[in-house]
């Protein structure tokens, strides 16, 4: 891990996954430093493992500021700088957003946090193996990782906890004092080996793999973007290539996914797809509910090739065309009706 992310082996705490790492880092650091202050800063588009952790801290009496991203889905460094207060102890901002693929400027945010003497936690579950990471250069104090997001085994993750300057966290799990007292419990050696290997492969092939996936991304977007009323969500330049989030206006996302059953797509994030709420991430970007309902996320990975992309393009085009034929909204749009002026019968 040292070569891959610039950390010392003694700075790695093995966990059951990124969810536990996020809990341990944010709660552990907030609890340990609560005499200094009880203010936390995060963003509205974090993964639920961070948001729900912050909600729990709020229940315990902490105050949390949730930063709104810009319209491209990015948390700008100055937004963090403006939100830091005397009593702020922890800032938690994700490296890559899981629904949009947007890539935050972690080094710039890290610099601000270091200058203002605030601990900086980064959820890197989506970025490891997708973009370079250097905890030293980025001034990161804590960073969460997951193995299975990078083709490793499920059930293993890690939290990087900086030694110099030292970051101290309160343990969540008490027992034999494993992991320097930060996380007790016998280590699952086989899982750790699997994670180490997955990370090694991920980071070693990073430049070539990034370029390959980026070409597939461009191919996908060019294959669908000539249709009317199709929009790319997220940042056009600050992103990882493997996540593409697209709105197909007047087509409901779930019905589109039904037509693409054999593709790796989801509406909203997979974790919340069971709910009928549109994606909270897209809404935080300023998309209206209607557009958020019409968006789906494509994932391009190690095993995706050009034929897969071409097949996806053909399926998407066919499905969008068919569903628009079925859509009363598309009808109205074609007739020049401004949908925002229609009085809908709420239900």
């Amino acid at each position: 891990m040292r070569d891959l992310i610039g950390a010392d082996p003694r700075e790695i705490v093995w966990t059951s996954g990124a969810t536990e790492a996020n809990n341990l880092g944010i709660k552990g650091c907030a609890h340990f430093n609560q005499r200094k202050g009880k203010h936390i800063i995060t963003s509205r588009i974090e993964h639920k493992a961070v948001l729900d952790t912050c909600r729990q801290l709020e229940r315990e009496g902490f105050e949390v500021t949730y930063l709104d991203p810009d319209s491209h889905g990015l948390i700008q460094p100055e937004m963090v700088a403006d939100a830091i207060r005397e009593d702020t102890t922890v800032v938690s901002i994700m490296h890559v957003n899981n629904e949009l693929g947007t890539l935050n400027d972690i080094a710039a945010i890290g610099k601000i946090c270091r200058e203002r003497k605030v601990f900086f936690h980064v959820d890197a579950a989506q970025s490891a193996g997708k973009t370079p990471i250097d905890v030293e250069a980025m001034n990161v104090d804590m960073m969460s990782f997951s193995a299975h997001k990078i083709y490793g085994p499920k059930g293993i993750g890690a939290l990087f906890v900086r030694r110099k300057p030292r970051v101290r966290i309160e343990a969540q799990m008490h027992g034999g004092g494993h992991e320097r007292g930060m996380r007790s419990g016998t280590l699952p050696t086989h899982q750790i080996v699997g994670m180490g290997e997955a990370f090694k492969l991920g980071f070693e092939n990073l430049p070539a793999e990034s370029a390959r996936i980026d070409a597939l991304r461009t191919r996908l977007w060019e294959g669908v973007s000539d249709m009317d009323e199709v929009y790319l969500n997220g940042s056009p330049d600050q992103h990882v290539p493997g996540i593409v989030n697209i709105s197909f206006a007047f087509v409901e996302g779930e019905s589109l996914i039904m037509a693409l059953r054999d593709l790796a797509v989801s509406s909203g994030s997979a974790c919340t797809s069971a709910s009928l709420e549109p994606s909270y991430v897209l809404r935080a970007l300023g998309l209206n509910d209607e557009m958020a309902h019409s968006s789906i996320r494509f994932s391009i990975g190690r095993y995706t090739n050009e034929q897969d992309i071409d097949k996806a393009i053909a399926k998407v085009r066919l499905a969008v065309e068919k569903l628009r034929e079925l859509s009363p909204l598309w009808d109205m749009f074609q007739d020049g009706v401004d949908l925002s002026t229609v009085e809908w019968a709420a239900h």
Partner: peptide, 13 residues
């Protein structure tokens, strides 16, 4: 009969 709303994710006509 047109019911539902785009913001709720379904409209039937």
């Amino acid at each position: 009969g047109m019911v539902g709303a785009p913001a709720c994710g379904d409209v039937m006509r």
